[in-house]
Design a binder for these strands. Sequence first.
DNA 1: TTGTAAGCGTTATCAC
DNA 2: GTGATAACGCTTACAA
Lengths: 333, 333
Amino acid sequence: MGRPQRRRCRSGLHRVGCGTVSVEDVLTGLDGRRPAERIRQVAREVGYVPDIQAIGLRRQRTRLLGVVMARLTDYGLAAIYEGIERAAMRHGFHTMVTNSWDDPATRQAHVEMLLGRRVDAMIFGDAHVDGAFVDEFTAHGIPFVLVNRRAGDHPSVTCDDYAAGRLAAEHLFALGHRRVGVIAGLPYASNGIDRTAGFTDYFAERGHPVPSAAIVDASFDSAGGALATERLLERQPYPTGIFAVGDFAALGAVGTLRERGLYPGRDVAVVGFGDLPIAAQLTVPLTSVSSPLYEMGARSVDLLAALMRGEPAESLRLRPELRVRESSGSLLP
Amino acid sequence: MGRPQRRRCRSGLHRVGCGTVSVEDVLTGLDGRRPAERIRQVAREVGYVPDIQAIGLRRQRTRLLGVVMARLTDYGLAAIYEGIERAAMRHGFHTMVTNSWDDPATRQAHVEMLLGRRVDAMIFGDAHVDGAFVDEFTAHGIPFVLVNRRAGDHPSVTCDDYAAGRLAAEHLFALGHRRVGVIAGLPYASNGIDRTAGFTDYFAERGHPVPSAAIVDASFDSAGGALATERLLERQPYPTGIFAVGDFAALGAVGTLRERGLYPGRDVAVVGFGDLPIAAQLTVPLTSVSSPLYEMGARSVDLLAALMRGEPAESLRLRPELRVRESSGSLLP
DNA sequence: TTGTAAGCGTTATCAC
DNA sequence: GTGATAACGCTTACAA
């Protein structure tokens, strides 16, 4: 064996258990140890690493999961992905994530790439409620689950977003708010839609339906929340309670309120969703509906694994919890 | 050709340009279109996608970049990764990211996996200053760059963290603060180290050295910042200015201050680093040193591409900018 | 047990 | 040009 430090096994080191050339080198110096161990040691020494591509090619399965997220800079999605990565490892899978930016062309390109890599299965975190893309994807015959957002009857693991909306509504209603507004998120994302529905249903049931003009769509980031809040504050009289379907949007709302000299929890109650780690640390801590992000990711892998074993796939709705803090005014005198 | 909808080309569709069985099917119905286009169309119809594994195996290069980050739930790292993903695409590369959690064993396992996939090159976003792991990695002979954190003389793209620390110091000094504290980040991460060094150097040069007890290590998250602030507030008299080397830590500091009845910008000036999108939206907007995250990611890919072309690799330090807001008290009367 | 050969899907080489 | 063939690194089925 020439100079070592070749990382790729171009010769026949992989056939080391049999009797190819390199066996000579490998077994030279075999000093009583069990061959298998000695082999592993030498392999390590020369920096041999099995070629996963070759293995995948030969076995026609890769144990690779493709994961498509809207954007990993969204804390929630990144947290879900961490759950996915960990659980996948537990199941003996590797994962490959990509950002689709919620853009059809980008998603298409990335999915094609993942198909080219012959992923064994897929997890979509960016489904649109209409389910158009996902429906189409079934044609590939590759098992998949949705996470974070549901679509049609496809197996999915989500937060019980409807219940989350009701929790927020119940809280604001109990505090006496009757004139409320909703920052509703993206119109094609089931999570925002369901949270909004849960919220508005609750108020409608109590005889105080939320006027549609007080429900404004917005992106999940703080800029979207800020903008939406400006719209809400145009109403006369303005709402005394705001439910934002995402914490970043809620913080955007806080920003706009501050600009108008209004304080969250004093002038306007603000409830967010997601319970970001920083929510509790803010100067005015944010009341938020918490959702088990990490678990959501992990459970989606479990569901996928079941599906791949041919077991029936039951969609999962994980339970949200309300975390009451000062931004909804409930702790102030 | 039998029923379509087989996603994998098990037969000979790939040899369609030559004269294998399937050519028949492919060329049947050729109605004047240029063959190449017709082929592409049929390929699309049957759902044919080239096998990237096979290509990689044959060509001995994958155009795949391995990316190792500490945690993608860290906004900065996720943003850097987005820059990497986009730039990689521009260069004709795909990327595969993994979370190392700054844990040697996890990092080792993930790197081995990436080597097994025969990545053409690597980007490490989680290097330790001592450079131990990275030094070792050079043995593989695979080109790589560091991003976000530097180590030794290895090519890296980072924020000019030392300058960032000086910016923060200059600002607090100009506001009249002389008794300051630093929440210094992880002791093995160059970015925190450099920011701290820049900050303390500035104060030392002005004749007001920061006592070492007023420099406390902490994780970059808000819990770390909260804890560190408790330590800082034990000092008598407590510091009137705090520089946290990360915004999340800064928000943690804000949380602890609030618990003690101290208000950021009034009782204690707080300066963060990273300029999170929400920094400007908070009830008390956060003064922060901004760093070009997306660009950092993109430039690291450019640097890597140059390196792979055999060009000499010059490390890059991108310029930070100070964003003054109310948490440092500078805008209050 | 140990060894051999075929084949996964692609590309590169060489002969026609 | 066009068409056949070997090879990439691995697994697996089968033969010795």
